[in-house]
Amino acid sequence: MQIADRIVLDQRSTYILPTKAGFLLILIILLMMIASTNYQNNLAFLLTFLICSIGIVSIVFTFKNLQGLAFELGKNQSVFAGEQLNFNFHVSSQSGSPHLGIAVGFDKKSLFYLDLLSSEGKLYNKKTFILSVKVEKRGWYSAPKIVTTSCFPFGLLKVWSWFKFKSPVLIYPQPIEPEESVINRIANDDGDSNNRTANEETEYDGITAYKIGDPISRVDWKATAKEQGMYIKSFTSMTVNESAFSWDDFSNVEYELRLSYLCYLVLNANDQKKMFSLSLPGLFVSKDSGENHLIKCLANLALFKLDELL
């Protein structure tokens, strides 16, 4: 099994076996052979051998339909734990010849198919497969091994190969809205104001373009359907403040849940275009705003003490 971010299929890890239809053909060839022998008919023999040869040649061509395919890991956006990850990767033809009826899947039962040749005869450079998978845990997510299979051209044989993408996808903690009771009332204005704003943000303020980190639950699907791109319902809060989020804000809370709370707060603050800082044990992200700052915070939350906590 090949493990890399760009995989070119070759003979080594590719397997082939007849399908049910293939076995049916073998049976029919046997019948034809018996009939030809019985009548000692040379044309019948010739036809039998022709069908036999086509079967043999189709071994090569079924094989070749997978050989020379290149799978390349796509740009997988980080998602929050508990959400669906649309794990995507691209397929292209390294051999330069069209490949048809290619299927991929995490197992042999739930497969997705596509052709690298359009019905108009255009050879596609590249096509994208998306395998949806629900991710449960924050941290690095490695997609399970992927099977690619095909029985093109005649469906008499099935060829398959397993591979695995090397680079993992970063999964952020699941954002959970902290309850009032769990928050340590430390003399911290920022903390207070943060909590306040969290409760205040009820005023619907139209839609804005989706940005990384926006909770999926807030996506305005109606608007998304109407226009190109994704939009979320945005809520403005009355107060614009600075916030400082800290690991110690939730001292009585279990560690994973703390990360989820912090994740929620960070996202919330970013929605309100506030400046915020994040402090975790042994790590401090200084006050800033903007998407890069957000991603930095989220990445730190995702990777925080990964080995110890999970």
Partner: peptide, 20 residues
């Protein structure tokens, strides 16, 4: 500095159920 923004992925893939 820029951050890759979310793009709706497009795919031509067809699930086995749909093919059936």
């Amino acid at each position: 500095m820029s951050v890759p923004s979310f793009q709706a992925l497009s795919t031509d893939q067809v699930s086995i159920e749909e093919i059936n």
